[in-house]
Design a protein around this nucleic acid. Sequence first.
DNA 1: ATATATGATGAATATCACTCAGTGGTTAAA
DNA 2: TTTAACCACTGAGTGATATTCATCATATAT
Lengths: 250, 250
Amino acid sequence: MPVQKKSRIVKARLRQSSPAATRRERVQSKEDAIIAAAHKSLVARGFAKTTMSQIARNAGVAEGTLYLYFSNKNALARAVVAAFYYRLTETAKTGVAKCATTRQKLEFLARHHLENIIGERRLLELIASDVRNTQAYEGSDIYKMNREYVAVFDDVMRDGVWRGEIEDGAAQWIKRDIFFGSLEYAMRTLLMKKRSNKKDIAAVVAELVKLIIGGSSARAKPVSDRDLIKAVERVDAAASRLERLSAVKM
Amino acid sequence: MPVQKKSRIVKARLRQSSPAATRRERVQSKEDAIIAAAHKSLVARGFAKTTMSQIARNAGVAEGTLYLYFSNKNALARAVVAAFYYRLTETAKTGVAKCATTRQKLEFLARHHLENIIGERRLLELIASDVRNTQAYEGSDIYKMNREYVAVFDDVMRDGVWRGEIEDGAAQWIKRDIFFGSLEYAMRTLLMKKRSNKKDIAAVVAELVKLIIGGSSARAKPVSDRDLIKAVERVDAAASRLERLSAVKM
DNA sequence: ATATATGATGAATATCACTCAGTGGTTAAA
DNA sequence: TTTAACCACTGAGTGATATTCATCATATAT
């Protein structure tokens, strides 16, 4: 059968001409395609309304193939969420690095989080409803990625305390809950308002940061000698850091 | 088929001996039974894992009967959530009425909310994932019941401002989001901790109320000190910028 | 007593997640 | 080159589940 044979050769050529050359690469790119297709459907329609056949069609594979890469629909959804967390963490880190003060960092983080969860709100449902309840959440991929993400916030807060820009008040996990919880709830409210816009986002961010920063230090008495001393220490520390850097350069 | 007939007669006798006499009452009590059965399964297993046949069996009706009372599984779940909100609102109102100060009212509301959503956390998933997204949420039963529930909080806040026990800071809806959002997120954290207990709940409640009440009044301060702090911030920020520049150069 | 309306039923249908027996193409050994 | 073993893939088939509908039972009205 020369015809069949020819078609096979053509197929092989086509595949070789495509960027993914090695077997491993091909498998990897297929996994990426599946995750991308799943992500698209999940964001557009939510978990319940995305079907595996939809995903398979969009990814250009057979339905059965999905199960070679992910044990079931939940696992696939989890992979999508993990990828989302990864992106979120990266952009959060680079954004924070560009901010000078703790206040600016927190404002950036809040706006960043809010804007992203508004865009991909359907993924949040997954985290809340499916992932956190089922089986051993701790130790799962999502758990780890979530830890890494909130660590960005934790670092900013720790640093802020060290710098003296926020007071060392309640337990860290409580502050964290207040920060992210408020934002997620605000997201719902914003989505319900017909014309929710940047002004509203800015208002939520401002108020939340005010609470987290100002709320803690509101307990302190009017600025006094202790505060002055602390301020001087901070200037001193900053100077020392500069000196160290200069020394290295020379 | 005498056997069939007999069983039907027995059923009928049993039914007649039950208290509900009129047609309307019988229908009502059947609806209640269905909602109760659905509630039980939803709380125990979550939306995805409760089946209509399960509910029908527990309610003592045929599967088709469910669809005489609720157009589909979602509508049934919504009815369950509405009933939950109703109960929640009632107990919240009576509880608040017993408190003297705004602080006490807020503490009660926070604890009450947290304890209840921990107990029926699976219903919360429904609200977030299924109900709020689908169709016209506004105008729905759930929307109305949710409004009534949060109105309890709003009233307490308004009253607190009027009494002068809290300052009139940010927009009401933002405070509301911070209050309920923090609690819902805290719930997840508490559920993940192995031995989450009353101490943790108390800590969250205390910190949140502190923020809501105390945070707003943080603005009034001597000017000169603030200027001083600002100046130090600027020095510190400048130092950070220098550090980053040096790092890049090297 | 009969007719009508109301309520209830569960077998049948459609849709979906998931499985599995089989195909084809690739690599390595003979 | 030929052969064999392996790997990635396929899609028709299976079972579970929400929803429908033709039919029956009971209560109410005439």
